[in-house]
């Protein structure tokens, strides 16, 4: 019984019952399958987050994004006053998180790959692209760069899913994906 010392003092060389041996074997094989799925997906999968990142001061990042946005702004998003930025297909795109917005709005082309830069100017934020449901943790002082290839077109929301204060639930941005 589990609440008493084992009745046989030498319990560690007792044979193991058959169903236990079978189960342990099966479970271990399954564990290996799950482990190797991750490197396997790095080789063949289309969805692997790059780990490229650089330390950067928030004000430096802000300036970089603003300069870039000024260059490629094509219009404003409705009456929000927020610029819609459409960079050349396949180029670098930037987004920043701050209390409480994702800035600017982007317009991308379907099927093109972009080098996507992401950082926060203040607190931690959670970049959540909907309805795709791609979620990335955004830190201040770190600029992360990954390649994004939109495979569907339409209007996508970017919400914040890391708590960032009282206005957290108002933090919504947008990405348009257009067919070429």
């Amino acid at each position: 019984m589990g609440i008493f010392p084992p009745p046989q003092r030498v319990w560690w060389n007792q044979p193991i019952e058959k169903s236990e041996v079978m189960w342990i074997t099966i479970a271990f094989i399954w564990a290996l399958v799950m482990f190797f799925m991750m490197p396997y997906w790095h080789l063949v999968g289309e969805q692997n987050l790059s780990n490229e990142a650089y330390k950067i001061k928030p004000e430096v990042y802000a300036e970089k994004v603003e300069t870039w946005a000024a260059k490629y702004t094509v219009r404003e998003e409705g009456d929000t006053g927020i610029p819609v930025v459409r960079p050349p297909a396949g180029s670098d795109v930037y987004m920043l998180g701050r209390l409480w917005e994702w800035w600017p709005v982007l317009e991308l082309e379907k099927g093109q790959s972009y080098r996507f830069h992401l950082s926060s100017l203040d607190w931690m934020h959670g970049w959540s692209l909907l309805p795709e449901n791609i979620n990335i943790q955004v830190h201040p002082n770190y600029e992360m760069i990954f390649t994004v290839k939109p495979t569907s077109s339409g209007e996508f929301g970017v919400i914040c899913n890391e708590f960032c204060g009282i206005g957290h639930h108002t933090m919504v941005g947008k990405i348009h994906v257009v067919d070429k």
Binding site: G126, S128, G157, I159, H169, M171, V172
Partner: peptide, 18 residues
């Protein structure tokens, strides 16, 4: 995609909404 730790998933007070 519903976020955790989030007060309003209707984004009523947000400029853009989702």
């Amino acid at each position: 995609g519903v976020p955790r730790r989030h007060w309003d998933m209707t984004f009523a007070d947000s400029a853009m909404g989702f």
